[in-house]
């Protein structure tokens, strides 16, 4: 009951606030965000941060979020619907780089601005704001090489085979590991981004290679945390067998603080808010000034460049003891 009243009050206030903003400015934009799925924490953060963008908060942008439910067809239908409903712009986080190309092109030819975020659309004309998964793979592999001083047996826990993030991350990993002939990949198998599956898989590997595994490369944080658990159950720690991953989820940042994993953060806020700024620049014209704090945060690595560049590649931030607390606060929404 109390919650209901609070919600109603918040809704009323939001409406009021946005109508004031409308009155002041006049021009509003209808923008849709089509994300591949909202079951994982990363995309939830992505959406939460998007809603915190100043232009969404002041009502300039009327935002609708579509959950693609991890299905390329669902996403295509959602984009087609947005075109029919005359959305001004679409922020697109595809489940697959190639699956949405046709629909995206159709949307663009209907004068809908499309910006890809987090995962690229395999078409050079679609601007992209996000991290480079190949680079992420390189970084985590390099971290492993450094931990092992260039020598040892490693295992790779893969994401769902064929998904863009899995393919790209692995490409980067193999590229780096290929330069170090003394590092051998003795096992490689998927755990589908899933912690419980990675736990089982790592346990079995530890049985198959007693004392033969020197490092675990997991293609995302959840699987890395599963591997850490398996090591513990076999009486090992990450000092004996280091674990590296990428993403920078809250759990993993905590684990990194305890030196259980080495991970690199991709900034959900930078991806979603950055993409919205680029979309607004395309809609509002060259006088538009980006409003998100992220351009300042990454000023060293990413240039706004009048908002018309095709690629805004964000840096992977190494999680260290020193920045863990601040990053945790950032990715958990201040909770």
């Amino acid at each position: 009951m109390k919650l209901g009243t609070t919600l109603a009050a918040t809704a009323a206030l939001t409406l009021l606030a946005s109508s004031i903003a409308l009155a002041a400015d006049g021009k509003t934009y209808k923008i849709g965000a089509a994300v591949y799925g909202l079951k994982g924490q990363f995309m939830q953060n992505w959406v939460r941060e998007l809603k915190e963008h100043p232009a969404v908060k002041d009502g300039t942008v009327q935002l609708t979020v579509f959950d693609g439910n991890y299905d390329a067809l669902t996403q295509n239908n959602q984009i087609e619907n947005m075109v029919t409903q005359r959305y001004d712009a679409i922020l697109f986080v595809p489940i697959d780089t190639k699956a949405g190309v046709g629909t995206v092109k159709a949307a663009m030819s209907n004068d809908v601005v499309v910006i890809a975020s987090n995962t690229k659309v395999a078409d050079a004309s679609v601007p992209y704001v996000g991290n480079d998964d190949v680079e992420g793979g390189r970084l985590q592999a390099q971290a492993m090489v450094d931990k092992l001083n260039g020598k040892g047996n490693v295992v790779i826990i893969q994401g769902p085979i064929g998904q863009s993030a899995q393919i790209d991350r692995e490409k980067g990993e193999l590229e780096v590991l290929g330069k170090h002939p003394d590092i051998k990949i003795i096992e490689k198998k998927t755990a589908n981004w899933d912690r419980a599956q990675a736990l089982t898989l790592t346990e079995d590997w530890l049985n198959a290679h007693p004392k033969g595994i020197n490092g675990v490369i997991a293609q995302n944080d959840d699987m890395a945390l599963g591997a850490v658990q398996a090591l513990k159950s076999h009486g090992l720690t990450s000092k004996d067998v280091p674990v590296t991953s990428i993403d920078g989820m809250p759990d993993a940042i905590q684990a990194a603080k305890k030196d259980e994993v080495t991970t690199f953060l991709q900034d959900a806020q930078a991806q979603s808010q950055g993409a919205l700024d680029v979309a607004l620049r395309a809609l509002a014209g060259k006088d538009y000034k980006p409003q998100s704090v992220i351009w300042e945060r990454y000023a060293k690595d990413v240039k706004w460049a009048d908002g018309t560049a095709k690629n805004y590649i964000l840096p992977w931030v190494p999680v260290t003891n020193a920045n863990a607390d601040a990053l945790y606060k950032q990715v958990s929404g201040g909770k």
Partner: peptide, 13 residues
């Protein structure tokens, strides 16, 4: 048991 085994309760488990 699963949440204890993976040291956290995951909604997508």
């Amino acid at each position: 048991v699963l949440s204890a085994r993976t040291t956290s309760a995951l909604p997508q488990a």
